[in-house]
């Protein structure tokens, strides 16, 4: 275990150094991941500012959801990049995944260490900035419980997205053709939780409650942090389920190991 962790750290630092070698490219790419968030959030901000919010949520309140989602997803996209379904699918098709299997180290750690996209720092920085703006503008009444719970929510959301990437990567053992559908789960849930869940049709809300239960990692906790009136109608435990759902990652890992076993029996 210790050996695996040390090795993961080494592999990660290799990835970082390789990316830093091309300094200009690195700076540009980092900036561009930031610009995408800036432009997307900018357009939302301009419109919400003009029309005074969306279904009773102010721009600052939306920013709370938005910042949380972008930050957690950004971190996940950086650290779990080895599992990014299209990237991982390429590794499987090109036989580079086989090379990892030929090494006497835990395979999950190796896949995680195979990519570390430092340029996502741009997206993360913007996400943090949006979140900071939200915290400041909403005048949240902080309690010790809220302060303690915030990192847990963030971390759970991060793990949850990571689990989705792992599931997507595992599916590429079967097919790469239709892997685009995974975007519904990954980018789809990240986009969905940028806004209050009440704006969506019922079936979408149900989908993100029961199938991909991301609603417990963002919307319900946000009601609690922001003391929104919708909190009264929600089940009282709903904002506090995030650690449970975050552990969904374990299920994803089960599926991942099942996928590897199948890959070993079928090849590609």
């Amino acid at each position: 275990m210790w050996h695996t962790l040390l090795l993961y750290r080494r592999l990660m630092s290799v990835q970082m150094r390789s990316q830093m070698q091309y300094r200009t490219a690195f700076v540009l790419e980092t900036l561009s991941t930031a610009v995408i968030v800036a432009v997307e959030f900018g357009s939302v901000a301009l419109v919400l500012n003009r029309f005074g919010g969306i279904q009773g949520w102010t721009l600052a309140e939306v920013a709370f959801l938005y910042g949380m989602s972008e930050t957690a997803f950004g971190f996940m996209d950086m650290i779990f990049a080895g599992f990014d379904p299209p990237v991982f699918g390429q590794h499987v098709r090109r036989g580079t995944f086989d090379q990892l299997l030929l090494r006497p180290v835990n395979i999950t750690a190796q896949v995680m260490g195979s990519e570390f996209t430092l340029r996502r720092l741009g997206k993360i920085a913007l996400g943090v900035a949006i979140f900071a703006f939200a915290v400041q503008a909403n005048q949240i009444i902080w309690t010790p419980l809220k302060l303690a719970y915030l990192p847990i929510v963030m971390f759970s959301l991060f793990l949850f997205f990571g689990g989705l990437f792992i599931i997507g990567a595992t599916i590429t053992f079967w097919t790469v053709d239709s892997i685009e559908v995974m975007n519904i789960l990954t980018y789809g849930s990240s986009f969905t939780i940028d806004y209050p869940m009440t704006i969506y049709p019922d079936w979408i809300r149900r989908f993100f409650t029961f199938v991909v239960p991301v609603i417990f990692l963002s919307y319900y906790p946000a009601l609690y942090f922001l003391d929104r009136p919708e909190l009264a109608e929600a089940p009282p435990f709903a904002p506090f389920l995030s650690p449970v759902v975050g552990i969904g990652l374990l299920l994803a890992l089960r599926f991942w190991h099942f996928g590897i076993r199948r890959y070993q029996s079928t090849g590609t």
């Binding site: 975007n183 519904i184 980018y187 789809g188 986009f191 806004y195 049709p201 979408i204």
Partner: peptide, 9 residues
């Protein structure tokens, strides 16, 4: 799917 998310906003 993404179209529906976008139009919901």
């Amino acid at each position: 799917f993404f179209g529906i998310l976008r139009v919901s906003v």
